[in-house]
Design a protein around this nucleic acid. Structure first.
Lengths: 243, 243
DNA sequence: TAGTGCTAAATTGTATACAAAACTGTGTCA
DNA sequence: TGACACAGTTTTGTATACAATTTAGCACTA
């Protein structure tokens, strides 16, 4: 018999509330009323409250000076900074992996993921869902590649800022054609990053990872300036002011 | 009449528990019992629990898979990584400040702090408490110098990892003579970082800030290898395994 | 003696209760 | 009409209650 997971209600509150906020269910800046939310999510205020505090440390909510929590409001520059930070932290993970070396198991897994990404991209018809899954695994692996749990933790944290995650612009169930052309470029950057790490070229690995995050920035600016209609398709973008 | 602060008990729990853990009151890895702790801190389990969850996200506590929270255990490499990360993030703050320019008010305040730091260091007798205060302000200002609240937040977060903060090795009420000689060097690094930012030399500012964090690593390794007796004087070091 | 299963105590996770503070709307006064 | 004050309502922050799970102790067995 498997052990019942701990903190069931808290985890449910965390996951469901995060989705609700990222999906733009609430207007940016609005106050979240505990009682109503608790009823909506079918749990009591205690675990909900814990989840709200957690989401506040993630930056998705804000503490209201007169009590309670507000949905955070982001400026365009906030998102740009969040993406920049993700690039910096992934760059650090890549550099440290190059400087310190990788565990063979992780190195091999990374090589496999890259081969499978090639297949997904080079196939006659792009295998989008495979790409999304493998891209997420690439970034997950990269975070832990230096063998440092502290670095891995902070990289993952940086991914929680809205629109900063490597998968942010791939989320929609359907494929957004405007982003497809960037996938081949992204994949050759994946390869270059890994190559630099293998060759112990720390500085190069760091720069490449930073530049790779710039793709997200390009996508972000494209949405904001050219295709505001896509805003609702990218989780979190509805919280960005001044569209 | 000033408004009563919100979340009084929660904030008290957070601050007092953080001190207790950093002071080494509990053994690394031991379980924190909510009822006992709540009684000790004179508050109920609800705000204490919130504080424990917060400290877990800071990395000071760990969730126990079978329930409750444990005091985190750190390896020497964890501390080294935490310091590295702080350097990386302060480096990013410095680089962005150089690239984007500073608000004049912040720039002037920084110049004043640096002058006062010079006075504290160059006086016939080192003014240690002034140095500690001003050093903290320098790093606080640096975090916000790029005008990005997101960057500032993450820099401050990185300071919460044990022994990673710029003040970690200056904490003791009394002066630890072994660290005094590093203060002049630290201050000339402060000056160089600021100069690079003023000159819009982003890459130089970033490298210098990273190198500046290395002083903390030097201090850390000195304590661990040469003077283990100092471990109890630096907050958080009692949680490091294998002394 | 080491290992296993059972029972009682302790501890956690969640729900609820309650008091204090913040909001809302209405009426009063200038 | 507009600013302000006040009462009623809502909402939060904290304490406490309770059930479910975990831990600890102990007898029993091989």
């Amino acid at each position: 018999m498997e052990r019942q997971e701990r903190n069931v209600q808290f985890n449910r509150a965390l996951i469901e509330l995060r989705s609700l906020v990222l999906d733009g269910t609430f207007e940016a800046g609005c106050r979240l009323k505990e009682a109503a939310l608790a009823e909506r999510l079918n749990l009591s205020r205690t675990p909900l409250r814990q989840a709200m505090d957690r989401l506040a440390t993630e930056g998705l909510l804000k503490q209201n000076p007169t009590g309670g929590y507000l949905v955070a409001r982001f400026t365009i520059d906030d998102i740009i900074d969040a993406i920049e930070l993700r690039g910096v932290l992934e760059g650090t993970a890549a550099r440290l992996a190059a400087e310190r070396g990788m565990e063979p198991a992780k190195r091999e897994r990374m090589a496999t993921v890259l081969d499978e990404l090639d297949e997904a991209v080079e196939a006659d018809e792009l295998d989008f869902s495979a790409y999304v899954r493998l891209n997420a695994e690439f970034h997950e692996l990269l975070a832990g590649l230096a063998g440092s749990s502290i670095v891995a933790r902070e990289v993952k944290r940086a991914n929680k800022l809205p629109a900063a995650s490597p998968t942010a612009f791939l989320q929609g169930q359907e494929l957004i054609p405007d982003f497809v052309r960037s996938l081949t470029q992204a994949q050759s950057q994946h390869r270059a990053i890994f190559e630099a790490i293998c060759e112990r070229e720390g500085a190069r690995a760091e720069s490449l990872a930073r530049e790779h995050a710039r793709l997200a920035r390009t996508n972000f600016e494209y949405v904001m300036n050219q295709k505001p209609s896509l805003v609702e398709r990218v989780p979190g973008l509805s919280l960005v002011a001044g569209q």
